[in-house]
Amino acid sequence: MDWVRRRAGWVLGLGLIGGLVWTGIVTLSQPGWYDPTQDCSRKLGPDATGVHTSWFPPTASCLYGDESRTYMSTPRTVVLSIIAVPLLIIIVTGLILTVRRLAGDPGPIRAAGALDLRKRWIKHLTFGAADLAIVFAPLTFLNAVAIVFGAIPGGILFIVTSLVGLSAICTALDRHLGPLPSRALDSRRRGTIAGVTTYAVVFAATAITGGLPFLRLWSVPLGGIAYAVIVAVQWRRASTSANQVQYSD
């Protein structure tokens, strides 16, 4: 269990990727979203009048007046339902363990030493903003793919996956370029806040402009700018806190 706790991020990541694959398989096993009645007519006969689908258990049936014909086979429904249970357990367990790490062992203090903190601050803002902008480029594309092939469950899983991935990237950036003195726990917390807040800004801007559920290309520069602003605030808070500690000593 201790090994799993230390690898909480990997456990969660594998669970989320598995969940995205699962939603894609379920979607492909159901009539297409663009013209579902045509898929029904092609597979089960012409003159389909409607479609009924369910995600758990994953099922799909085509309506022919008062008659309902099974589109997704029962064995596939059973197999996908069985697979969904451990995937859900892995995702929930990974989320719980990941959140607990934000209150775990703080680790040793990393001192600034002879480092030029101003140069470190500039690198954090510039390289960090560029990295986040680069990350949002594929996110914009993958967001559309997840929704098209995974529908609402795929979109939700993609959001969670994006939050986890951005938090991990921002934590790594903070660990290498973040404020000093600092502890590993501080980097995890600042990185998580930066990643989640950056995505929240992009998501909110997309919602306000009426672009949901698909991210727009302008989310690429917006993600970088939002991250730079958040990091600047974190540096200021860390500097103020360090000065207060030094003054009290």
Rank of each mutant, 00 (worst) to 15 (best):
G18A: 10
P57Y: 01
L125T: 11
I208W: 11
T171Y: 12
T23M: 05
L212S: 04
W55A: 10
W121M: 14
P138F: 04
G45F: 09
V231R: 14
G211I: 08
L215K: 03
D47H: 15
D186G: 10
L173C: 02
I134P: 00
R101Y: 00
T140D: 03
G155Y: 07
A194M: 07
L88K: 00
P86T: 02
R216T: 14
H52Q: 14
I89H: 00
T161S: 15
C40K: 09
V233D: 04
G104H: 04
H124D: 14
D105R: 09
P108L: 13
G13L: 12
N243I: 01
A60Y: 08
A232S: 15
G210F: 10
S167G: 15
P31I: 05
D186Y: 01
V220L: 00
L117K: 09
A242L: 08
F127I: 14
C40P: 08
G50F: 10
V145M: 10
L63A: 14
T37K: 13
V79S: 02
G191Q: 07
K119D: 15
P221E: 05
W10I: 14
A228H: 00
Q244H: 13
E67A: 13
W235N: 13
G94N: 06
L132M: 12
L28P: 00
R7F: 05
R175F: 11
F136H: 04
D66P: 12
P153E: 03
R69I: 01
S248C: 07
